[in-house]
C-alpha cells in the first residue's frame, strides 16, 4: 500500500513566447520545475516509476492560457502558499504558477472536471471594416454546425453543444476580439482559432493575425 499523498492543484499561465509550446512540452517543463523545487513528490508504482502529476485539457501550440492547471501529488504536506513560492522560483516566467491549493483525493480528474474553456481570440487586420467581423462570426455560428478537416477526415462539431453560449465580438478599427466558451467532451474540443479563421475567410481577411488565449477553465455548473 502506498503512503498517504496530498493532492496539490496548481494553476499556471502559458504566456508570451511560451505559448508556442506543445502540451507535452508544457507538461515536461512543469515536471522539471517541480523537481527543481525539491518538493517531495509521489512516484507512480510499477515498472517505470514517474512523478505523479496530471494535467488539465491540452492547449495547442500557439495558444496562450491564463489559468491552466495540473494536480501534483506530494508525499509531505507543505503549506500551499509555500509550495506556490517554491514553484514560482523554479519555473520559467511564461509558465509561472499563480495559485496552489490542496484538493480532495476523491475529486474527479482535471480533464474530467474542467469541460468548459473560456477563450478570447484577438484579431488584427488593418483593412478590417467596422462590424464585419461580428457579422462573419455570427454567420459561422448561426449555421449550427462547423466542419474541419483533420488528418484527412472531416470532423463536424454541433455548435449547440460545443458553443453553448455563442460568440461575442467587440471591435475597434483594425482589430477585434471574439469571446466564446467551448464545451469539451467526448466529441472533442473545437479549436476557437479554426472557427475565427473560417469567419475571416468568409470576409476575405486571410492575412489577419489571430491570437488565442484561454482565459479560464471551469467545470459545468450544477
Amino acid at each position: 500500500m502506498a503512503d498517504a499523498t496530498f493532492r496539490l492543484r496548481v494553476t499556471y499561465g502559458k504566456t508570451g513566447r511560451l505559448r508556442f509550446l506543445s502540451h507535452l512540452e508544457v507538461a515536461h517543463s512543469c515536471e522539471r520545475a517541480v523537481r527543481r523545487t525539491g518538493l517531495e513528490y509521489a512516484v507512480t508504482q510499477g515498472f517505470n516509476p514517474r512523478m505523479k502529476i496530471a494535467f488539465g485539457p491540452a492547449l495547442p501550440v500557439g495558444s496562450a492560457g491564463l489559468a491552466e492547471s495540473y494536480d501534483l501529488w506530494l508525499r509531505r504536506l507543505v503549506p500551499a502558499a509555500e509550495t506556490l513560492e517554491m514553484l514560482r522560483a523554479a519555473t520559467p516566467v511564461g509558465l509561472a504558477p499563480v495559485e496552489a491549493r490542496y484538493v480532495g483525493d476523491k475529486e474527479p480528474s482535471l480533464t474530467a472536471a474542467m469541460t468548459l474553456g473560456e477563450y478570447e481570440v484577438s484579431v488584427e487586420d488593418p483593412d478590417m471594416g467596422p462590424g464585419r467581423l461580428a457579422e462573419a462570426v455570427a454567420d459561422v455560428v448561426g449555421s449550427g454546425s462547423f466542419a474541419i478537416e483533420h488528418k484527412g477526415a472531416l470532423k463536424v462539431y454541433d455548435l449547440a453543444i460545443c458553443l453553448p453560449e455563442g460568440a461575442q465580438v467587440s471591435e475597434e478599427p483594425g482589430r477585434g476580439t471574439v469571446r466564446m466558451v467551448i464545451h469539451m467532451g467526448a466529441w472533442g474540443s473545437l479549436r476557437p482559432e479554426a472557427l475565427v479563421r473560417e469567419a475571416l475567410g468568409r470576409m476575405d481577411a486571410n492575412a489577419a493575425s489571430v491570437a488565442v488565449t484561454r482565459v479560464l477553465l471551469r467545470p459545468e455548473e450544477g
Binding site: 513566447r17 511560451l18 508556442f20 520545475a33 501550440v61 523554479a90 520559467p92 516566467v93 511564461g94
Partner: peptide, 10 residues
C-alpha cells in the same frame, strides 16, 4: 516545432 526558436528556457 516553434519551440526551437523561442529561447526563454530555464
Amino acid at each position: 516545432r516553434p519551440a526551437r526558436y523561442i529561447d526563454s528556457e530555464f
